[in-house]
């Protein structure tokens, strides 16, 4: 805009262009480092000018994220990032808006805003960094902590059911839903790239290890020796095959999940395949699968093409203007009942 108009957008940005001059202050070993690095690596691939990128966060460890990105950024209030981001996107739909939030920020204090941004389908990307614990306040249970979880505020174990973020997003009508692991660099890149390309609200849950207050919460999933058995990768158009020997598959029998043993590769070809556009009932079924009964689905659960909120808002303004003509302020002030003195 004004000051630098005419300067062409930088064509060949690199990861370094997205690293701010601020020292990163997460605990050594925190999963957030991998996520930050992954996002900084992804940005140059999106073909979007850096000045058009805005990172918005709430409060919590992961919400320090914007300070470390050399883009526009807003570290807002606890839980309110989706609401702030809505204002930003509506004011300027050209911006690429990224919300970075945590399990407490998004699902406890900010649950209402998350629900509404998802149902409105604003074209923004939400990274929900889920470590199943309150880190910044030093270790209390969070809305995604599992029942029985012993923490400083639940010495006898948490008596609360955990929120299932994927099921929450599906119920809210999210049009893009994915789940990744902080340390799975390749898959994280793939999901974030797909999220950025999706027109509408993209919701990506990222399992993140808090090595200080909840170390190993996802170790069954992240352990490279075990993950083949504990997770199933959601690959578009492919059956839900998993296992070290790739000899097991997840199928749904009359809405009930079932694991079938595969004798050979040919058998796998006859199985139903993953279809991320299949509808929210399918997303919900997938969201309910937890280890050890079932492998945990990782990857893109759901993608649906729907008009975005900001496009519809702009369209209404355009239609209104077409119908009533560009507003005449004099006429507006006069209203329809004037008199002369």
């Amino acid at each position: 805009m004004a000051a630098f108009e005419g300067i062409p957008a930088t064509a060949d940005l690199t990861k370094a262009d997205f690293v701010s001059d601020q020292t990163v202050r997460w605990c050594p070993g925190c999963g957030d480092y991998a996520i930050l690095s992954g996002v900084q690596k992804l940005m140059p691939q999106l073909g979007i000018e850096k000045e058009k990128m805005v990172f918005v966060s709430g409060i919590g460890c992961s919400s320090r994220f914007p300070y470390y990105m050399n883009t526009y950024g807003f570290h807002t209030l606890h839980g309110r990032a989706p609401a702030l981001a809505t204002g930003i996107k509506l004011a300027n739909p050209d911006l690429s808006v990224w919300i970075v939030t945590g399990d407490g920020d998004a699902l406890s204090i900010g649950g209402n805003h998350l629900l509404h941004i998802l149902r409105r389908n604003l074209d923004v990307n939400i990274l929900l960094v889920n470590n199943q614990i309150y880190g910044l306040t030093k270790g209390q249970y969070s809305p995604t902590s599992l029942p029985g979880k012993v923490t400083k505020s639940s010495p006898a174990g948490s008596i609360e059911e955990a929120v299932n973020p994927i099921a929450f997003a599906a119920a809210a009508g999210a049009t893009f839903i994915a789940r990744c692991l902080d340390t799975d660099v390749k898959e994280l890149q793939r999901c974030l790239h797909a999220a950025a390309s999706h027109k509408g609200t993209s919701f990506v849950e990222i399992y993140q290890n808090c090595n200080i207050f909840n170390d190993g919460a996802f170790s069954k999933i992240s352990d490279r020796k075990e993950s083949a058995e504990t997770t199933v990768r959601l690959e578009e158009g492919k059956p839900l095959v998993f296992g070290k020997e790739r000899n097991k598959a997840l199928v749904f029998d009359n809405m009930s999940p079932k694991i079938v043993e595969l004798e050979n590769e040919l058998e796998a070809k006859k199985l139903p395949v993953h279809d991320s556009t299949a509808g929210s009932a399918y997303t919900y079924l997938l969201s309910q699968l937890t280890y050890p009964d079932f492998p945990v689905p990782m990857g893109i659960f759901r993608q649906e093409s729907k008009p975005t909120y900001e496009d519809q808002s702009e369209q209404q303004i355009a239609d209104y203007t077409k119908k009533h003509g560009t507003g005449d302020i004099k006429q507006l002030l006069e209203g329809n009942d004037t008199w002369q003195v």
Binding site: A3, F4, I7, A9, E51, G73, F74, N92, D94, L95
Partner: peptide, 10 residues
């Protein structure tokens, strides 16, 4: 946001 060269965080 949108003004190049002025990227900053608040």
């Amino acid at each position: 946001p949108g003004m190049p060269g002025f990227e900053h965080r608040v």
